[in-house]
Design a protein around this nucleic acid. Structure first.
Lengths: 126, 126
DNA sequence: GTAATCGTTGACGTCAGCGTCAAGGTCAAG
DNA sequence: CTTGACCTTGACGCTGACGTCAACGATTAC
């Protein structure tokens, strides 16, 4: 399939696909007229990238997963490099959560100081 | 005082001060030679801005606080506009925390699926 | 032939909060 | 007089993941 169809099926822009290629995440063979030609496996790669991005991963983080898929594994996360990224990301997320909680507490304290009536409700903690 | 001294006392760069001025957050009167001249109150303004930024506020968010201080209030948060920003920010932070928690759960699930031995330890939740 | 719809590369724009030159003017000390 | 520390404005760089032209070629439909 060509870039437009892949973009539609992956729910992404053609610009993004060219960008991924430029970043070395995917490659496309070229037709005689210079058009990019993609396989079904490329769709899998792009889908993997997308799902990782939506979880907050960067393209750089996605590299091992893509490499894992291209190496023939059924899942992009079945390689040790991918698992390492998972673990690192988990730690990063935990860090962010901690700082956000600290900020939340600070802001809430400031708010109650500034406006004692405007107590933030305590019951809607998720 | 001039910009260098203010920067030192506020613990920020002169570039940042000029940037805040460019964004309309602070203003400086000019000496005969064109140098910026700051008062002690300007130090307060900058300090307020800094503490807000470190809590995750944007310069835009800081505007009402600065305006409040300039209006003569002892605290930048004693104006209704500032309180409104506090409340909005609190909601934003809660949103971010929620999405981060969701991501964390997703990543953790993926990790355990990919590597059943690498269970993320459950005891270090902050 | 021509219009519509695809594709190509290249390159600048976006968002925030500055960092980092560049190219100069000002001022006190020695 | 000169060094050196300070100040000025202006403008590009940076990070990430693309959006959005521009200017052009290819393919298909009619």
């Amino acid at each position: 399939m060509r870039i437009g169809e892949l973009a539609r099926r992956a729910g992404i822009s053609t610009r993004a696909l060219r960008y991924y290629e430029q970043q070395g995440l995917i490659t496309a063979r070229r037709a005689a007229n210079g058009y990019r030609e993609y396989s079904e496996e490329d769709l899998k790669l792009v889908t993997e990238i997308r799902s990782l991005l939506t979880v907050g991963f960067t393209l750089e983080d996605a590299r091992p997963f893509v490499a894992c898929l291209r190496a023939g594994h059924a899942s992009g996360s079945s390689c040790p490099e991918s698992v390492a990224v998972y673990r690192r990301k988990l730690a990063e997320i935990d860090d962010e959560i901690r700082t956000l909680l600290a900020r939340r507490a600070e802001v809430a304290a400031q708010l109650t100081t500034a406006c004692p009536g405007c107590l933030p409700r305590e019951q809607d903690k998720t």
